[in-house]
Amino acid sequence: MLSYQHGYHAGNLADVHKHTLLAWALSYLTRKDKPLSYIETHAGRGLYDLTAPEALKTGEAAAGITRVEPLLPPDHPYRVALAVVRAQHGATAYGGSPLIAEALLRDCDGIHLAELHPREHAALADISGGRLYKTDGLALAQSLLPPTPRRGLMLIDPSYEVKTEYAALAKLLPQLHAKWNVGVIMLWYPILVDNRHRAMVRSLTQAIPGALCHELRFAPARPGHGMHGSGVITVNPPWGMQDEARRLTQLFSDL
Protein backbone atom coordinates (compact mmCIF):
# COMPACT_ATOMS: atom_id res chain seq x y z
CA MET A 1 0.00 0.00 0.00
CA LEU A 2 3.07 2.22 0.12
CA SER A 3 3.91 1.86 -3.58
CA TYR A 4 1.47 4.38 -5.05
CA GLN A 5 3.08 7.57 -6.36
CA HIS A 6 0.62 10.32 -7.22
CA GLY A 7 3.19 12.38 -9.10
CA TYR A 8 2.35 10.41 -12.25
CA HIS A 9 -1.34 11.31 -11.92
CA ALA A 10 -1.41 14.76 -10.30
CA GLY A 11 -3.80 17.10 -12.03
CA ASN A 12 -5.63 14.38 -13.93
CA LEU A 13 -9.39 14.48 -14.49
CA ALA A 14 -10.08 12.57 -11.28
CA ASP A 15 -8.05 15.16 -9.35
CA VAL A 16 -9.98 17.96 -11.05
CA HIS A 17 -13.28 16.37 -10.07
CA LYS A 18 -12.28 15.77 -6.45
CA HIS A 19 -10.47 19.06 -5.92
CA THR A 20 -13.17 21.19 -7.53
CA LEU A 21 -15.79 19.80 -5.15
CA LEU A 22 -13.41 20.04 -2.19
CA ALA A 23 -12.54 23.67 -2.90
CA TRP A 24 -16.19 24.58 -3.36
CA ALA A 25 -17.17 22.91 -0.07
CA LEU A 26 -14.37 24.56 1.91
CA SER A 27 -15.22 27.95 0.45
CA TYR A 28 -18.84 27.46 1.46
CA LEU A 29 -17.94 26.37 5.01
CA THR A 30 -15.60 29.33 5.57
CA ARG A 31 -18.35 31.84 4.79
CA LYS A 32 -19.57 31.41 8.34
CA ASP A 33 -17.53 33.23 10.96
CA LYS A 34 -16.88 30.09 13.00
CA PRO A 35 -13.71 27.94 13.07
CA LEU A 36 -13.67 24.48 11.55
CA SER A 37 -11.56 21.33 11.44
CA TYR A 38 -10.12 19.89 8.24
CA ILE A 39 -8.99 16.26 8.33
CA GLU A 40 -7.32 14.39 5.49
CA THR A 41 -6.56 10.68 5.72
CA HIS A 42 -4.31 10.18 2.67
CA ALA A 43 -2.62 13.53 2.17
CA GLY A 44 0.25 12.64 -0.16
CA ARG A 45 3.11 15.08 -0.66
CA GLY A 46 0.81 18.05 -1.30
CA LEU A 47 2.81 19.70 -4.08
CA TYR A 48 3.63 18.55 -7.61
CA ASP A 49 5.51 19.98 -10.58
CA LEU A 50 3.54 19.51 -13.78
CA THR A 51 6.76 19.71 -15.81
CA ALA A 52 8.38 16.88 -13.84
CA PRO A 53 9.24 13.70 -15.79
CA GLU A 54 6.52 11.73 -14.00
CA ALA A 55 3.79 14.16 -15.06
CA LEU A 56 5.07 14.46 -18.62
CA LYS A 57 5.37 10.70 -19.00
CA THR A 58 1.67 10.08 -18.49
CA GLY A 59 0.29 13.34 -19.90
CA GLU A 60 -2.60 13.14 -17.43
CA ALA A 61 -2.24 16.72 -16.22
CA ALA A 62 -2.28 18.02 -19.80
CA ALA A 63 -5.59 16.23 -20.36
CA GLY A 64 -6.84 17.27 -16.95
CA ILE A 65 -6.15 20.52 -15.11
CA THR A 66 -4.48 22.23 -18.09
CA ARG A 67 -7.57 21.61 -20.19
CA VAL A 68 -10.28 22.17 -17.58
CA GLU A 69 -9.05 25.13 -15.55
CA PRO A 70 -9.73 27.76 -18.23
CA LEU A 71 -13.34 26.51 -18.42
CA LEU A 72 -14.01 27.30 -14.75
CA PRO A 73 -15.08 30.80 -13.68
CA PRO A 74 -12.06 32.93 -12.70
CA ASP A 75 -13.40 33.32 -9.15
CA HIS A 76 -14.10 29.62 -8.62
CA PRO A 77 -12.53 28.53 -5.30
CA TYR A 78 -10.48 25.85 -7.07
CA ARG A 79 -8.87 28.41 -9.38
CA VAL A 80 -8.33 30.76 -6.44
CA ALA A 81 -6.52 28.02 -4.50
CA LEU A 82 -4.38 27.04 -7.48
CA ALA A 83 -3.36 30.67 -7.95
CA VAL A 84 -2.24 30.83 -4.32
CA VAL A 85 -0.15 27.68 -4.77
CA ARG A 86 1.50 29.01 -7.93
CA ALA A 87 2.25 32.35 -6.30
CA GLN A 88 4.04 30.50 -3.51
CA HIS A 89 5.74 27.70 -5.46
CA GLY A 90 6.03 28.70 -9.12
CA ALA A 91 4.01 28.74 -12.32
CA THR A 92 4.21 24.98 -12.96
CA ALA A 93 3.26 23.98 -9.42
CA TYR A 94 0.11 21.99 -8.77
CA GLY A 95 -1.37 21.81 -5.31
CA GLY A 96 -2.73 18.56 -3.97
CA SER A 97 -5.64 18.61 -1.57
CA PRO A 98 -3.57 19.64 1.49
CA LEU A 99 -2.39 22.83 -0.21
CA ILE A 100 -5.79 23.51 -1.72
CA ALA A 101 -7.24 23.31 1.78
CA GLU A 102 -4.51 25.50 3.29
CA ALA A 103 -5.05 28.12 0.56
CA LEU A 104 -8.75 28.40 1.43
CA LEU A 105 -8.79 27.91 5.20
CA ARG A 106 -8.19 30.56 7.84
CA ASP A 107 -5.84 30.93 10.78
CA CYS A 108 -8.63 29.92 13.16
CA ASP A 109 -9.17 26.57 11.41
CA GLY A 110 -7.47 23.33 12.41
CA ILE A 111 -5.75 21.18 9.77
CA HIS A 112 -4.91 17.50 10.39
CA LEU A 113 -3.05 15.62 7.64
CA ALA A 114 -2.16 11.93 7.72
CA GLU A 115 0.39 10.39 5.33
CA LEU A 116 2.05 7.03 5.94
CA HIS A 117 4.49 6.86 3.00
CA PRO A 118 7.90 8.00 4.34
CA ARG A 119 8.99 10.04 1.31
CA GLU A 120 5.56 11.57 0.76
CA HIS A 121 5.32 12.47 4.45
CA ALA A 122 8.76 14.10 4.41
CA ALA A 123 7.89 16.14 1.32
CA LEU A 124 4.61 17.26 2.86
CA ALA A 125 6.38 18.27 6.07
CA ASP A 126 8.58 20.66 4.07
CA ILE A 127 5.67 22.69 2.73
CA SER A 128 2.62 22.28 4.96
CA GLY A 129 1.57 24.38 7.91
CA GLY A 130 -0.91 21.79 9.11
CA ARG A 131 -0.54 19.24 11.86
CA LEU A 132 1.01 16.13 10.30
CA TYR A 133 0.66 12.50 11.34
CA LYS A 134 2.85 9.69 10.01
CA THR A 135 0.23 7.05 10.61
CA ASP A 136 -2.65 5.17 9.06
CA GLY A 137 -5.15 7.83 8.08
CA LEU A 138 -8.30 5.83 8.69
CA ALA A 139 -7.17 4.91 12.18
CA LEU A 140 -6.38 8.58 12.80
CA ALA A 141 -9.85 9.56 11.60
CA GLN A 142 -11.44 7.26 14.15
CA SER A 143 -9.26 8.62 16.94
CA LEU A 144 -9.85 12.31 16.13
CA LEU A 145 -13.62 12.24 15.88
CA PRO A 146 -15.39 14.28 16.94
CA PRO A 147 -12.74 16.96 16.40
CA THR A 148 -12.38 20.36 18.00
CA PRO A 149 -13.73 22.58 16.49
CA ARG A 150 -16.68 20.31 15.81
CA ARG A 151 -17.62 21.92 12.49
CA GLY A 152 -15.59 20.73 9.59
CA LEU A 153 -14.76 18.49 6.68
CA MET A 154 -12.88 15.24 6.23
CA LEU A 155 -11.45 14.05 2.91
CA ILE A 156 -10.83 10.32 2.48
CA ASP A 157 -8.84 9.66 -0.68
CA PRO A 158 -7.21 6.21 -0.65
CA SER A 159 -5.18 4.73 -3.50
CA TYR A 160 -7.41 1.62 -3.61
CA GLU A 161 -4.38 -0.57 -4.28
CA VAL A 162 -6.05 -3.32 -2.25
CA LYS A 163 -9.49 -4.50 -3.40
CA THR A 164 -10.68 -5.01 0.18
CA GLU A 165 -10.56 -1.24 0.75
CA TYR A 166 -13.97 -0.88 -0.87
CA ALA A 167 -15.67 -3.22 1.60
CA ALA A 168 -13.73 -1.73 4.52
CA LEU A 169 -14.83 1.80 3.63
CA ALA A 170 -18.44 0.70 3.25
CA LYS A 171 -18.32 -0.30 6.92
CA LEU A 172 -16.15 2.57 8.15
CA LEU A 173 -17.99 5.60 6.77
CA PRO A 174 -21.23 4.99 8.71
CA GLN A 175 -19.13 4.58 11.87
CA LEU A 176 -17.37 7.90 11.27
CA HIS A 177 -20.69 9.57 10.55
CA ALA A 178 -22.11 8.21 13.82
CA LYS A 179 -19.16 9.69 15.74
CA TRP A 180 -19.31 13.01 13.89
CA ASN A 181 -22.88 13.54 12.80
CA VAL A 182 -22.35 17.22 11.88
CA GLY A 183 -19.18 16.68 9.86
CA VAL A 184 -18.93 16.83 6.09
CA ILE A 185 -17.20 13.63 4.98
CA MET A 186 -16.03 13.32 1.38
CA LEU A 187 -14.94 9.95 -0.01
CA TRP A 188 -13.31 9.76 -3.44
CA TYR A 189 -13.20 6.55 -5.44
CA PRO A 190 -12.11 5.54 -8.95
CA ILE A 191 -14.49 4.12 -11.51
CA LEU A 192 -12.68 1.16 -13.06
CA VAL A 193 -13.63 -1.06 -15.98
CA ASP A 194 -14.85 -3.81 -13.64
CA ASN A 195 -17.09 -1.37 -11.69
CA ARG A 196 -15.86 -2.74 -8.37
CA HIS A 197 -17.05 0.44 -6.65
CA ARG A 198 -20.73 -0.33 -7.09
CA ALA A 199 -21.26 -2.51 -4.01
CA MET A 200 -19.57 0.11 -1.80
CA VAL A 201 -21.66 2.95 -3.22
CA ARG A 202 -24.88 0.99 -2.88
CA SER A 203 -24.07 0.10 0.73
CA LEU A 204 -23.17 3.67 1.68
CA THR A 205 -26.16 5.36 0.07
CA GLN A 206 -28.44 2.91 1.86
CA ALA A 207 -26.67 3.31 5.22
CA ILE A 208 -26.44 7.13 5.05
CA PRO A 209 -29.62 8.62 3.56
CA GLY A 210 -29.01 12.07 2.15
CA ALA A 211 -25.41 11.42 1.13
CA LEU A 212 -24.62 12.98 -2.24
CA CYS A 213 -23.07 10.62 -4.80
CA HIS A 214 -21.55 12.33 -7.82
CA GLU A 215 -19.84 10.43 -10.62
CA LEU A 216 -18.16 11.60 -13.81
CA ARG A 217 -17.10 9.50 -16.77
CA PHE A 218 -14.20 10.32 -19.06
CA ALA A 219 -11.94 8.60 -21.55
CA PRO A 220 -9.06 6.52 -20.15
CA ALA A 221 -5.83 8.46 -19.85
CA ARG A 222 -4.18 6.08 -22.34
CA PRO A 223 -4.97 2.78 -24.06
CA GLY A 224 -5.32 -0.01 -21.53
CA HIS A 225 -5.68 2.34 -18.55
CA GLY A 226 -8.32 0.95 -16.19
CA MET A 227 -9.86 4.14 -14.82
CA HIS A 228 -12.64 5.69 -16.89
CA GLY A 229 -14.35 7.82 -14.28
CA SER A 230 -14.30 9.34 -10.83
CA GLY A 231 -16.76 9.36 -7.95
CA VAL A 232 -17.23 11.37 -4.77
CA ILE A 233 -19.67 10.52 -2.00
CA THR A 234 -20.34 13.41 0.38
CA VAL A 235 -21.96 12.89 3.75
CA ASN A 236 -23.76 16.03 4.99
CA PRO A 237 -23.22 17.87 1.69
CA PRO A 238 -23.32 21.65 2.17
CA TRP A 239 -26.34 23.44 0.74
CA GLY A 240 -25.83 24.05 -2.97
CA MET A 241 -23.27 21.29 -3.50
CA GLN A 242 -25.66 19.33 -5.69
CA ASP A 243 -25.88 22.35 -8.01
CA GLU A 244 -22.09 22.54 -8.15
CA ALA A 245 -21.98 18.85 -9.02
CA ARG A 246 -24.45 19.41 -11.86
CA ARG A 247 -22.28 22.21 -13.23
CA LEU A 248 -19.29 19.87 -13.20
CA THR A 249 -21.27 17.19 -15.01
CA GLN A 250 -22.08 19.70 -17.75
CA LEU A 251 -18.50 20.94 -17.93
CA PHE A 252 -17.11 17.41 -18.33
CA SER A 253 -19.74 16.55 -20.94
CA ASP A 254 -18.45 19.43 -23.05
CA LEU A 255 -14.81 18.29 -22.99
Rank of each mutant, 00 (worst) to 15 (best):
V80P: 01
S37C: 11
T92M: 07
N181R: 15
T148G: 02
K32I: 02
L216R: 01
L138W: 00
S97C: 12
E69W: 09
G90L: 10
E165W: 01
G90H: 12
Q250F: 05
R119K: 13
D243W: 04
F218Q: 03
P174C: 05
A199D: 15
R150A: 02
R67L: 14
C213I: 02
Y160P: 09
H225S: 13
S97I: 05
A23D: 05
L155V: 00
P237Y: 04
Y4K: 15
Q88N: 13
P118Q: 12
G240P: 04
A101T: 14
I127E: 06
V201I: 10
S128A: 13
L124C: 08
I111H: 13
P190T: 13
D15S: 11
T249N: 10
A52F: 03
A103H: 09
A199F: 02
L13S: 09
D15K: 08
A123H: 09
Y48P: 06
K57F: 05
A55M: 02
H197E: 15
R246D: 11
R217A: 12
P35T: 10
Q250D: 14
H89R: 12
K179C: 02
L153K: 04
V235A: 08
V235H: 06
L192Y: 06
A139R: 14
T20H: 12
L251A: 05
P220G: 11
A93W: 08
Q206D: 12
L36D: 01
L138E: 05
K134N: 12
S3W: 13
L145H: 00
G129E: 14
S128W: 02
V68K: 00
K163D: 10
L47N: 06
A139H: 11
I127P: 03
H112E: 08
I127Y: 07
P149L: 06
A245C: 14
W239K: 14
K34E: 13
P98T: 11
N12Q: 09
L82Y: 01
R150T: 00
P53G: 10
G130Q: 04
C108I: 03
L104A: 14
H89E: 03
R246P: 03
T58Q: 11
K134W: 00
P147C: 01
Y8Q: 01
P98F: 07
L36R: 01
Q5H: 15
P53Q: 08
S253W: 03
K171T: 12
D136L: 04
D109F: 06
H121D: 09
A25N: 10
V201W: 00
L251H: 06
L56M: 13
P118G: 10
M241C: 07
A101P: 05
G11F: 03
H177E: 01
A219W: 00
Y94F: 14
A10K: 01
G7W: 02
D15L: 10
L56W: 01
V16K: 06
A123N: 08
E165S: 03
